[in-house]
Design a protein around this nucleic acid. Structure first.
Lengths: 222, 222
DNA sequence: TTAAAACCTACGGATTCCCGTAAGGGTTTG
DNA sequence: CAAACCCTTACGGGAATCCGTAGGTTTTAA
């Protein structure tokens, strides 16, 4: 099925658990592990150059900071970088992250092969995911499937994301207006920004801007 | 060293990682695992009754809810229950929780033998912890030792959390004031709430309430 | 081409938030 | 006992926001 797998996970306990399952249940001989995204990226590049590429990547999303400087802050950045460079390795993301916005982007835009939710039965699902990929299918953890439909309620433009991010950074509406003006973004008037925030508030059923930004954070939009 | 160990951890990947280390590095034959605190408690009681007690407990602190009803919500409750019942099993807590208040209570009041922080080198520390306990010592993860002194940076009270949560839910300051009044919380005046929010804004270097709630979300406080 | 719709912008009043000042009560300190 | 201090509460002015109205431009549809 798979011969050479790279496991990227910062916590050693989880990395060891993954390795054990991949080795014993799937029967993979060569399992390489890394606790850092930057290192993982280099290993993938190097393996490809040596014409002994990995045929599967299993990665976490969030990584704790430590003394090392990290260019790739997390699994999302790692995946983006790989796709950007045209490296077509199959990818399984194994994370505790359960927000649809994040997961959908990975599945639909980055085209990862599987998204497995860490949890009580995470490893069982991971096993199933590997079997599915070997069959040419994709895999999504069953806990997440129920919430798939509710995703297209409202399509946010980059403009809205930018607006929400600026609010979250503490800028006032008029500051944002000036900023947008100086960047040549449109619309940029205070009035329009007010209107847009109002639309977002209605959309997310938020009473005020504070709640709006809070729910945007919850949904992983910003 | 140890002959019979109980590992309590909800995530299967971590449980497997712990088991692997305890088995291979420490050389324990009999490792029992449980994904639920209630079940773990019953197993300990039963083992004692059968005169084949566990001689070590390794437990997580936080457990995800699922369909099962849980009397013991987490590792803290499990430890308290055991101590309350006079069961003197050595305990290692293995958790991602790094707040001093929680850890100090476990170490000093509940008298657990070791507190190991989950992280990149969690398993290495766990191994050291087991060796220390076998020697009759206690163990605290090295990352935590430095932070013993600087724990009083800023302690958020439940009051502050409640305040931030209410803001995130979209309530205005005067609404929160009324709510606090009706609940008999103190302070409850609009003025005091303003003051407290101001203090929080300074503490988190936030320009306004929006940014304050956004950073509180980022820090996982609410 | 023209009418309708949607959008950007501007303005003004009402509300809320922000921030400094200050009074009153309780505790600690000299 | 009084002074100093901390905390709660109150008040007021200025800033930011909320919300409706309205005029001008662009886009869409008939």
């Amino acid at each position: 099925m798979f011969k050479k797998i790279l496991v990227v996970e910062d916590f050693d306990s989880i990395g060891l658990g993954i390795s054990a399952v991949v080795q014993n249940k799937i029967g993979v001989d060569e399992i390489v592990t890394s606790q850092y995204c930057d290192e993982a990226y280099l290993k993938i590049k190097r393996a490809k150059q040596d014409e002994a590429p990995f045929d599967l990547l299993i990665t976490d999303l969030s990584f704790e900071k430590d003394y090392r400087e990290a260019k790739l802050k997390g699994g999302k950045e790692l995946v983006e970088k790989l796709r950007e460079q045209g490296i077509s390795i199959p990818i399984v993301v194994y994370s505790i992250e359960d927000r649809r916005a994040v997961i959908n982007e990975l599945m639909e835009i980055q085209k990862i092969e599987a998204y497995v939710l860490k949890g009580r039965n995470g490893l069982k699902n991971l096993e199933q995911a590997l079997l599915a990929i070997a069959n040419g299918d994709t895999f999504l953890s069953p806990e997440l499937k129920n919430s798939v439909e509710k995703k297209n309620l409202f399509e946010l433009e980059d403009y809205d994301i930018s607006l929400l991010s600026n609010l979250a950074k503490g800028y006032s509406q008029s500051e944002i207006a000036q900023d947008f003006k100086s960047q040549g973004m449109s619309p940029s008037s205070l009035s329009s920004i007010e209107k847009r925030i109002n639309r977002l508030k209605e959309e997310f059923e938020a009473k005020n801007a504070i709640q709006l930004v809070a729910t945007a954070k919850d949904l992983g939009l910003i």
